[in-house]
Design a protein around this nucleic acid. Structure first.
Length: 588
RNA sequence: GUGUCUAUAGCUCAGAUGGAUAGAGCACAGGAUUCCUAAUCCUGCGGUCGCGUGUUCGAAUCACGCUAGACACGCCA
């Protein structure tokens, strides 16, 4: 509806501007006035163009208004307010018309794909032999939402999990784990049993400590690294086993989090290990590679450190090894060349902004991108803080394990479900607790502008009121409850929607506004815009629920219409929540 | 030292690309249930948009300066 409306208004404005000899090409911004009394939509074009036309904004607004008023099937009222705003009140019939069209549509987004952009989303990026902790939460869930949203708009999305699965830390773990693996093999015990991720992490920590104290261990680990890099088959075999054991646990958490990453998306650092030398060669061809203090570096003018000294991007270390910049460059080359990416999105914490600025600039300057027009976008996010406003840690100063945090959320959610709806079966309560608890953690994160740090609080995220997952889920469950009462199938209900109350009208308009927020998330990569929309939708629904009874509605046509409005609300909510990777129970 | 980000109601936060009287939730005060889940709804209270200068018909939003905080700045990722 909005698209047609914009076109209509645009043509009217252009008609007026033509009289002033102005050819307008800029798009108008159709706004929703903050106060509903000022209409359904408003434009400020008269003020914008007043200067160009050398004409007072009020006069210009009047001329536009006169033209708009002729469109009686669209508007019930058009008026001028304030310094020259044009406020438009839609006719109920036009809302009904477009709403019913949406009801018939297969796709809630009514996408007509014009431009397909193959997109790589690089997120989660867990490390092998380390348990997931809070630090992994944001990348994992924000990246997952972005991938889902961009995909929903019709673009092919390639998820990439850039695992930390190579280098010295891995050599150290292999060094320590080798005897354990051998023993298990001899005894025929499953590796996951004797060497779960937690104990792998212990081995890594032990190795780090030993390397510091004992230079023999450090040397041994370094030898393992060299053997690994040379492709020693025994060590590669161990490496592979450790990776699988480690990732098995990660996938348990992905599943709990409802995150779509799979083994097919794994492209860790190890994947690029044989492309690094080539990448360096390619960079060398650009003539930008310079040796400095023994390391191979690229210096770019836009990056200066203190006192204006140049800031390098280190491509190859003085010992011949590579570090993360080179892996990222090799990955960019692979993604543009082999995966055909036109857009690459990196979801990492805000501390890496400089790194990505440098790596992006290096990639463009050295010409290693197969497609120089590829859009490279870093999506930074702030930290999760504890009550003390410092990065969230346990009392002993350790990182908080993600599995423990999620378990606590589910436990707390269970307590609430148990209190609020004790009649449910225990099995179902557990199911609801999982959806609500996990949903709450995810929603609390996603609903915040990702740029900022936020303080983690179970109490706030599990609140039943306000902008929280349980509030949205409750709205969804209430709708399902109505359909159970009405004994109608919620999955294929269909009726004509008509407006008989202001709450219905507002809810219908809100439902039709879904696409705008989804498009905004795909463009600006800020999931909280969608959260905000879903919250407002739920508020509209709750208000409707209160004022417009469905079951006690005597008029059959109105009742059927309200059921349809409920149906569309539920579909929209469920769809939006699914884009956020959050499940919505039908009863809670 | 240089750079990036942040500062909006008592608290937690929306308001990017300039527009109407700056919005929500929590908290606080009051009200609503013979009726679909009250896990709800409605009303009220609450603001020098960190400070200052500038640009503009118009600034929370843009520019410059200042203050406070977080983070980053060569061989970790």
């Amino acid at each position: 509806m909005k698209k047609q409306l914009v076109q209509l208004i645009q043509s009217k404005i252009n008609q007026v501007l033509k009289n002033y000899g102005i050819d307008n090409n800029s798009a108008i911004d159709l706004q929703i006035p903050p106060d509903k009394k000022n209409g359904d939509f408003s434009i400020n074009a008269a003020m914008k163009f007043a200067k160009l036309c050398k004409c007072p904004p009020q006069k210009l607004a009047g001329e536009i208004k006169t033209l708009l008023e002729t469109e009686t099937q669209w508007f019930s009222k058009v008026c001028i307010a304030g310094p020259g705003f044009i406020n438009m009140y839609l006719a109920d019939a036009i809302i009904e018309k477009f709403f019913n069209e949406l009801c018939q549509s297969e796709n809630l987004l009514q996408t007509n794909v014009t431009e397909i952009v193959p997109t790589v989303v690089d997120y989660s990026s867990v490390n092998i032999a380390k348990q997931m902790h809070v630090g992994h939460l944001r990348s994992t869930i924000i990246g997952d939402v972005l991938a889902r949203v961009i995909e929903a708009l019709g673009n092919p999305v390639i998820r990439q999990n850039h695992l930390g699965d190579w280098g010295l830390p891995m050599a150290m773990v292999i060094y320590k784990a080798e005897p354990v693996v051998r023993k298990a093999e001899k005894e025929g015990v499953s590796l996951e049993e004797v060497l779960p991720l937690a104990s792998l992490e212990q081995l890594y920590k032990a190795a780090t400590a030993e390397c510091k104290e004992d230079s023999k261990v450090a040397t041994a680990c370094h030898e393992y690294l060299v053997r690994l890099q040379q492709g020693d088959s025994e060590l590669l075999d161990l490496w592979k086993k450790i990776t699988r054991v480690s990732m098995a646990e990660v996938y348990r958490i992905y599943k709990l989090l409802n995150v779509k990453l799979t083994e097919a998306d794994e492209r860790g650092e190890s994947f690029y290990r044989n492309m690094l030398a080539d990448t360096v060669e390619e960079i060398k061809k650009s003539g930008l590679l310079k040796e400095d203090e023994g390391a191979q570096c690229v210096f770019l003018d836009e990056f200066k450190s203190k006192e204006g000294t140049p800031l390098p991007v280190i491509i190859q270390k003085s010992d011949g090894g590579y570090n993360y910049a080179t892996f990222d460059l090799a990955a960019m080359r692979y993604r543009t060349k082999e995966l055909g990416a036109k857009r690459i999105i990196y979801v990492t914490d805000a501390r890496q902004v400089l790194h990505f600025k440098q790596v992006f600039a290096t990639a463009r300057a050295t010409g290693i991108l197969a497609d120089p027009n590829v859009s490279l976008e870093h999506v930074p996010f702030g930290s999760i803080l504890g009550e003390d406003n410092k990065p969230l840690k346990t009392r002993s100063g350790e990182n908080v394990k993600l599995s423990e945090l999620l378990n606590e959320a589910v436990d707390r959610a269970y307590a609430v479900v148990n209190e609020k709806n004790p009649k449910l079966s225990d099995e179902y309560k557990k199911e609801v607790a999982r959806m609500v608890g996990i949903g709450a953690v995810k929603y609390a994160d996603l609903s915040q502008n990702r740029n900022n740090d936020y303080v983690f609080s179970f109490d706030r995220m599990l609140a039943l009121n306000g902008n929280t997952a349980p509030y949205l889920q409750y709205a969804h469950a209430r709708i399902c409850s109505i359909f159970r009462r009405a004994e109608k199938s919620i999955d294929d209900y269909c009726a004509k929607a008509i407006i008989s109350a202001p709450e219905e009208r507002e809810l219908m308009l809100k439902i039709m506004d879904l696409k705008q927020s989804v498009v905004s998330v795909a463009t600006d990569l800020r999931p909280h815009v969608l959260c905000n929309y879903l919250y407002e939708l739920s508020v509209c629904f709750s208000s409707f629920y209160d004022k417009c009874s469905v079951m006690n509605c005597k008029d059959e046509a109105t009742k059927a219409s309200r059921l349809e409005i409920c149906n569309m609300t539920r579909k929209t909510l469920a769809f939006g929540l699914d884009l956020l990777g959050i499940e919505a129970p039908r009863e809670m």
